[in-house]
Amino acid sequence: MIELKYLKNVVTLQLDQQKCNACRMCVLVCPHEVFEIKDKKAHIIRKDLCMECGACEKNCSEGAISVKSGVGCAAGIINGLLRGTEPTCDCSSSGSVCC
């Protein structure tokens, strides 16, 4: 299968290797194989494939990962713009259909 890729050099994902204890959690939760453990440290090997879901940051017990996570969804961003909030695909309140 052709690998689907989105825009280059936009992702906000950052890793502080000093704090990493090589627990592998980031490798286990990432759905796009962005991380790899090498020489007892995590490495970001495929940054452009990151979709900023935030699972790695949430599950890093050492706080070594940061990413501005949110919905990669145009309708959600428009929703946020209209309401003056962060991008949100808040289906429950508007009753509209999404995700």
Binding site: Y6, V11, K68, C73, P87
Partner: peptide
């Protein structure tokens, strides 16, 4: 562009960048 919300590989930063020009 709205299909970004259904896709499994688009990031918030990416969609924001795309929309800034496209919308």
């Amino acid at each position: 562009m709205n299909f970004t919300g259904s896709s499994t590989f688009t990031s918030l930063s990416g969609v924001q960048k795309e929309m800034k020009l496209s919308l």
